[in-house]
Design a protein around this nucleic acid. Sequence first.
DNA 1: CAGTATCCATTAAGATACTG
DNA 2: CAGTATCTTAATGGATACTG
Lengths: 124, 124
Amino acid sequence: MAKRKENSTNMLNEKLIMECDLLYAINKVGGRWKLMILSKLQKRKLRFSEIKREIPTITERMLALQLRELEKDEFVKRTVYAEVPPKVDYELTAVARELIPVWRQLENWAKKHRKYEGVDHVTP
Amino acid sequence: MAKRKENSTNMLNEKLIMECDLLYAINKVGGRWKLMILSKLQKRKLRFSEIKREIPTITERMLALQLRELEKDEFVKRTVYAEVPPKVDYELTAVARELIPVWRQLENWAKKHRKYEGVDHVTP
DNA sequence: CAGTATCCATTAAGATACTG
DNA sequence: CAGTATCTTAATGGATACTG
């Protein structure tokens, strides 16, 4: 799926950036949905449809895509149960859980400094 | 510049996400270049051309765009000197500096956990 | 239930040329 | 020096229909 130009400057720049540990860490949970999904999994494991219910505005396509990436990067563990109808659930890995305190700090920083932009802030 | 559909689901989703402090914090320094730029400014203020020299693969367009956003979000302070030829420099704000210890933790997490993907990791 | 597949819209990023 | 302007390409996200 979509692997046009392996040696475009675009690709090279992305590789360059990901060589840096910090940039790697930020970019792996960047994007619109990943942290949102991870935050929903903090309390307990959830099924696909449960996550979808928690984040109603995400499409199934995006949810599936993001979950695949999070799984590949070992932020979540996917478990398939041999049942019918099918049952799959997702849970945070230990590696992901280690990030929670760091997220809290980021959150506190944001709470403290961001300017009010006419929205109510939410803590997931 | 480009303000097509104000009420697309896309826009609504972006707003929703940014109501969360944590997601705000991550997304403000997300993207390919922002953290890279900020890290270069940790030691001292730099001029436009100096940043460009530190990050040779960024285009002038991208550097200018990212600096504008970082300025707007108050991560950097832009100073114009009334000289000719023109001189402008950029420095981290106090708000941005408060994030440095958090970055360090993220970095340590990444160092510890990321799998080796055939690249040498770099600490800026 | 837990996804894929397909198609389209939006945004991010890059190349290059040009300017006060 | 410190940028803009313009154009093109790549990546991301959304809508919708369909399936094992």
